[in-house]
Nucleic acid binder design. Structure first.
Lengths: 130, 130
DNA sequence: TTAGTTATTGTTATAATATAACATTGTGTA
DNA sequence: TACACAATGTTATATTATAACAATAACTAA
């Protein structure tokens, strides 16, 4: 019996916050913002974040230790992610390019490594900051 | 007058350690290993790491908070990095593929963002762990 | 060479990010 | 109901990284 991932209370609170945000959020900034909703401890935040990442509702921007909601509608599991990051204003955008994802999904290195997942972060200047 | 980046004492000690290592090293593991050489504080390690990353002698594996020596002979500045990471044994290898680097260096997203740098991390199982 | 400048170092303290361990509560299901 | 399992709550602590400032070394130009 298949079941959509319905979020639990804490997961929903934290997802809503991230989803509303226009910028990536850091764990302790999330914690600060949900304390009035009864989430008091870092672990409660990290557990929800872990789960949300696992089911693909959010992504972690590794170079920034921050989290953004997935805006790639078909992305149910986080196995192929690409972002652009502005080095001045820190704006982060999820890249949705069929060509890019096809190229990377098919990429094989010479060691014969089989890849099940990748994360790509581009850095540069966004239109506004250029 | 051009000058090769000659490393300072601390930078050299820390680079040697990373360069000899067969696996990525974490900052506090580095600290532990160089204490007998007189490097006593985290900041001394982080400062050397920052500089070594800046001049391209080492790379940071963002998803692991760990550092490896650059084995891409021509890589003097860290602006285009790609790694494969085994999710079981945690072996990390720098990918050196002309095709890949060319594809990514030329990649332009639809927002017209101009990229000056990227970091790509592939995850999967290495030959041994498959 | 000497002063000015800049990079590097040393040091203490602290900030920011993340997990361990364990008791408790809720939720779905047989 | 009772079992299994996921999620929660809580305290403590581990891990990763930087702030602030004083001291020293290295480079540059008059």
């Amino acid at each position: 019996m298949h079941k959509e991932h319905s979020l639990t209370k804490n997961q929903q609170i934290i997802f809503d916050l991230i989803d509303k945000s226009t910028e990536p959020l850091k764990a302790y900034s999330i914690l600060f913002n949900v304390q009035k909703k009864g989430i008091k401890a870092p672990l409660q935040v990290y557990r929800a974040l872990d789960k949300l990442v696992e089911i693909g509702k959010i992504h972690k921007i590794e170079s920034r230790n921050a989290f953004i909601a997935c805006h790639n509608s078909r992305c149910q599991v986080a196995k192929a992610t690409a972002f652009s990051i502005c080095e001045i204003c820190e704006k982060v955008t999820e890249i949705s390019s069929a060509g890019l994802s096809k190229y990377l999904a098919n990429f094989k290195d010479k060691d014969g490594m089989k890849y099940s997942k990748y994360n790509l972060e581009f850095f540069g200047l966004c239109k506004k900051c250029r």
